[in-house]
């Protein structure tokens, strides 16, 4: 049984498909969790469901100043942050030859830059308290690539590289930094894909089904737990065997 009692977690993208499952998992393991996203309605619903150990903070991660105040508020509400889950992410697909600067920059900004800024804002407190768990949600696409997603794959691969460097810098302070790379998970992010495309993806998935948010969330609480203190700089792939590394 994973025990996160007394642990304080900040989770981005909590209003999304994977985020909600992660929030439920962390709360079930006993953590106090600050949930953030832009969609207030979704977050309020989730908070109602999860009860007193869940707080919400509305913040748009595209604005640097918001990130600073978000982390400050979360630290005040929780009394420090032990666990940071960088889960917010977007796609803006286009073939490379047509990809606009805006599509490129938006995806890099939300996926990669916000992960850097969130982590930078949180890690000082972790260094001071000599404990921390940083968990970054990347993607199979960051490792395998995907036509039409050069911006997304660049952002996710970059997070993996960043995590390895940071893990080396802060390991001596009992802070671990890891990534989880989901494959195809049924959420809003993938809801727009055509049935034909889904069928095609399914062919490459060894366990013959699409993934659910709950397939991902268990790994988050495991990496957040004390049982995972010897795992750092790693990427856990959760993709039904779609890619084997």
């Amino acid at each position: 049984m994973i025990n996160l009692r007394e642990k304080k977690a900040l989770l981005t993208g909590a209003s999304g498909g994977i985020g909600k499952a992660v929030a439920r998992e962390l709360i079930a393991a006993g953590a106090n969790v600050c949930l953030t996203g832009r969609n207030e309605e979704e977050l309020l619903k989730l908070q109602n469901e999860l009860g007193d150990n869940a707080d919400i903070i509305i913040a748009d991660l595209s604005d640097h100043a918001n990130i600073i105040s978000l982390v400050k508020e979360a630290e005040e509400k929780l009394g420090g942050i032990d666990i940071l889950v960088n889960n917010a992410g977007i796609t803006k697909d286009n073939i490379f030859l047509r990809m606009s600067d805006e599509e490129w920059n938006d995806v890099i900004d939300i996926n990669l830059n916000s992960t850097f800024k969130m982590t930078k804002a949180v890690i000082r407190g972790m260094v001071k308290r000599r404990y921390g768990r940083i968990i970054n949600i990347t993607s199979v696409i960051g490792v395998a690539g995907m036509a039409g997603q050069s911006n997304y794959s660049a952002s996710k691969a970059a997070i993996i590289g960043m995590s390895k460097s940071l893990a080396q810098e802060v390991g001596s302070r009992s802070i671990t930094v890891n990534c989880i790379a989901p494959g195809f998970i049924e959420t809003n992010m993938t809801a727009g894909l055509s049935e034909a495309r889904k069928e095609e993806i399914l062919k490459s998935i060894v366990v013959k089904r699409l993934g659910l948010p709950e397939d991902v969330s268990g790994a988050v609480s495991y990496l957040a737990s004390d049982s995972a203190s010897y795992i750092t700089g790693q990427t856990i792939h959760i993709n039904g065997g779609m890619l084997m590394i």
Binding site: V127, K128, E169, V170, S172
Partner: peptide
């Protein structure tokens, strides 16, 4: 000191 120590000292 290592480089992280210097950051902690500044904090």
């Amino acid at each position: 000191a290592d480089s992280l120590d210097t950051v902690e000292l500044v904090m």
